[in-house]
Design a protein around this nucleic acid. Structure first.
Lengths: 246, 246
DNA sequence: TTCTTTATTATCAACTTGATAATAAAGGGG
DNA sequence: CCCCTTTATTATCAAGTTGATAATAAAGAA
């Protein structure tokens, strides 16, 4: 692939200084389920502005980095999670570009949704990152009742809404449980995210065609042993019905 | 809302130069239906790189502008469309930030999906914008067969996919027809976007609960006069089934 | 008037849903 | 070891939805 001479000349004459520029960051909506409750990894701000307020983890995108790569890097830096070991799902959410969203300067942020697998009991341990602000887990539906730093409440709300909607017509909920999971574990993810209860029998009937039965059984704490499944298909059709809010 | 002294001091001490910055643009996937075919407004590039290739309309985001405002402004500038007169739907699609997506320099682009209403016959007239490159309408499914400038083929594909998916569970297709429309007009939008045929009777049955009958009738060119509807609800439940590709 | 064209409604079997119950398979306490 | 509790899975049933196909209705044209 050789570049024609005319094009090369043009590229050399290009002057990036002629164009307006912005600082680009990523903000992360990191979600995991424990105790039947959807949690988000958040940092308590130790500096102005919004000192003492809750914020999403995040940071600047490097000059030779895509937003997605920056999302993975910041996730490791700010939460201390070992992504080589932990199964993790990252997808772009939306970009927030209101000129006044950060009072310090023009910052445009590409928000990402991050889903971490848990067994439903223990949340992944968060170690303090390079920043002094340590990340901790917070129950999502409770924390959305109070304000957050910057526009992070909107971003968190959008992230939960994205997950809620996508769970209706894909098996993305399986990214929040271990590789092999029981129907109850998967149903608990739906209930935690949608903040509602679902009838167990109908849930199993609906989900069964979209997962793969490993043949293995989980040793139950109490009651009958549950079958262990792995996620297979991407699309649930017709979709899982989300009960009306309330 | 007074700012505490400590915070004000902090804001003054902030130095934007310390942080990496990128040029921010918007790219527009502008869609409209005519003759039963989904079309996209595209510009033929007159300069390097990708000279002669097809590209999405777009441009730089101003220093005090949100991406959405820039999308509206660039739409007017590059296509000459009068948005005061024309009903237009704009929604953010995704942000493209591969460091090498533009060979000239680091450019991050927030792509937007734009839907223009038509009667199904005539596409909105595009006048040449301030740039020498004039915009023209191109059939989407045909143009996606050949390469485009930059990563614009991916963006266009993502835009059509977003519209296709959203049409399954919302009445967004109504943004591509006039305020008052017939079932056939609306069905044509589905057929053009999904690039498939749909049985008319079942389409009417399925859509009827989600639109409002004005009581008026369209004067038909041939055949029975069709009822005129307006769009009402946002969510179609259960969703409109999209036939498997083929 | 009759034909052609298009819109709308109807029919029907197969399937899906939500509610509810029945069955099955553990472990634990007496 | 036998029942009781707990949990998982399967079954049942009426109401609703789907896809295929056809019947009816309402124009304009020949």
């Amino acid at each position: 692939m050789s570049t024609p001479n005319g094009e090369q000349q043009f590229l050399n004459a290009y002057t990036p200084e002629d164009y307006p520029s912005v600082a680009l960051t990523v903000d992360l909506v990191v979600l995991a389920v424990a105790g039947g409750v959807l949690h988000s990894a958040l940092v308590r701000r130790g500096v102005h502005p919004f000192m003492g307020g809750l914020a999403l983890p995040g940071g600047f995108v490097g000059p030779r980095e895509s937003a997605e790569r920056a999302a993975f890097r910041e996730l490791e830096e700010e939460t201390g999670l070992d992504l080589g070991r932990l199964p993790v799902h990252v997808e772009q959410l939306a970009t927030y570009s209101d000129p006044d969203r950060d009072p310090r300067m023009r910052v445009v942020s590409v928000a990402h949704l991050v889903l971490l697998a848990t067994d439903g009991q223990d949340l992944p341990a968060l170690s303090a990152g390079s920043d002094a602000e340590a990340a901790g887990w917070h129950p999502v539906h409770a924390v959305l009742e109070s304000p957050m730093a910057f526009d992070h409440a909107s971003i968190l709300r959008d992230g939960v809404e994205r997950l809620s909607g996508k769970m209706e017509y894909t098996t993305v909920a399986a990214r929040l449980v271990p590789e092999e999971f029981t129907m109850t574990q998967l149903r608990t993810v739906y209930e935690a995210t949608w903040n509602t209860r679902l009838p167990a029998g109908n849930f199993t009937r609906k989900m069964l065609p979209h997962v793969h039965d490993t043949g293995r059984k989980s040793k139950a704490a109490a009651g009958a042993p549950a079958a262990l499944f792995t996620a297979t298909e991407r699309h649930i059709h017709p979709p899982m019905a989300r009960p009306a809010a309330g």
